Computed example of a mutant assay.
Amino acid sequence: MTAQLANSHTSLQSKELKILIVFSRLNDFKHEIYDGFMDKIEGKATVDLYIHQFSTQNAFHFEKVIKEKINQYDYFAFMMHTSYLNEDFLKTINSVPTNKLIILEKRNEFIRGKYACVYQDFEQDIYEALFKAKEAILKYSTLNCIIQEHYANAYFVIEGLKKFAKENNLQYNIYSDIEENTIRSKEAYLILSERYLAETLMCCKNKKMVVGEDIGIVSYNETPIKEILSGGITVVSTDHFQLGKNAADLILSGRQEHIRNSFLFIRRNSL
Rank of each mutant, 00 (worst) to 15 (best):
L5C: 04
S11L: 14
S14Q: 12
K15W: 08
K15C: 12
I19F: 00
R25N: 14
D39H: 15
I41V: 07
Y50Q: 05
H52A: 07
T56W: 00
H61G: 13
E63P: 04
I66A: 07
K67N: 14
K69Y: 03
N71A: 13
Y73M: 09
D74K: 01
A77P: 09
H81N: 10
H81I: 15
T82W: 05
N86Q: 04
K91A: 05
T98S: 07
I102H: 00
E105Q: 12
N108H: 06
Y127Q: 01
E128I: 15
A129T: 15
K134V: 05
I146L: 13
F156P: 06
E159G: 12
A165Q: 13
Q171H: 10
Y172C: 05
S193E: 06
Y196H: 08
L197E: 06
K205A: 12
K205M: 15
N206V: 07
K207P: 02
K208C: 10
V210A: 10
V211P: 02
I215F: 03
I225Y: 02
I225F: 02
K226W: 04
K226Y: 09
G232H: 02
G232F: 03
I233K: 00
T238I: 15
D239I: 11
F241I: 09
Q242H: 06
Q242G: 06
G244W: 02
N246C: 03
A248I: 03
R255V: 09
H258G: 11
L271P: 02
